[in-house]
C-alpha cells in the first residue's frame, strides 16, 4: 500500500509535473523561435499554429502554466508566512482558479475571442 495522498502532496506532484513540462516547453519554444528563419520558416510555423492539434496543445499548455502559476503563488504565500491552516483552502482556491483559467483560455483559443 502506498502512502496516503494528502492535499499537500497532491499539490506538490502537480507542481513538479507541470514544472518539468513547462521547462521542456520553454526549451523547445526558445529553440524553435530562434530558428524561425531557418529551415522551417516563419510561414510553416504560422501555418502550423492554425492546426487544431496545436491549438489543443496550446490549451493544455495554458492549463499546465495556470496550475504551476497558481500553486506557485500558494507556495510563495505559505513560505512567506501564511499559516498552515490555509494550506488546503489555498489549494482549493488555486484549483478553482485553474479551472476558470482553463475554461476561459480554452474558449478563447479554440473558439472566438472573449
Amino acid at each position: 500500500m502506498r502512502h496516503k495522498l494528502y492535499t499537500g502532496s497532491f499539490a506538490w506532484i502537480i507542481q513538479r509535473v507541470s514544472g518539468v513540462l513547462l521547462a521542456l516547453f520553454l526549451t523547445l519554444h526558445l529553440y524553435f523561435m530562434k530558428n524561425i528563419n531557418g529551415p522551417l520558416g516563419y510561414q510553416s510555423i504560422a501555418g502550423m499554429m492554425k492546426n487544431p492539434l496545436i491549438k489543443f496543445g496550446e490549451t493544455i499548455l495554458l492549463m499546465v502554466a495556470a496550475a504551476h502559476t497558481l500553486n506557485g503563488i500558494r507556495i510563495v504565500l505559505l513560505e512567506a508566512g501564511a499559516p498552515t491552516r490555509f494550506q488546503k483552502p489555498l489549494f482549493y482556491l488555486a484549483a478553482l482558479g485553474i479551472v476558470v483559467l482553463s475554461i476561459t483560455g480554452a474558449y478563447s483559443l479554440l473558439g472566438g475571442r472573449i
Binding site: 499537500g8 502532496s9 506538490w12 507542481q15 507556495i75 505559505l78 513560505e79 494550506q87
Partner: peptide
C-alpha cells in the same frame, strides 16, 4: 517544498512545515 505531509502525520501535532 512545503508539502505538509509531516504536519499531517506528526503524532505530537507539531506544525513542522511552518
Amino acid at each position: 517544498h512545503s508539502i505538509y505531509n509531516c504536519v499531517e502525520v506528526c503524532p505530537k501535532e507539531i506544525d513542522i512545515t511552518s
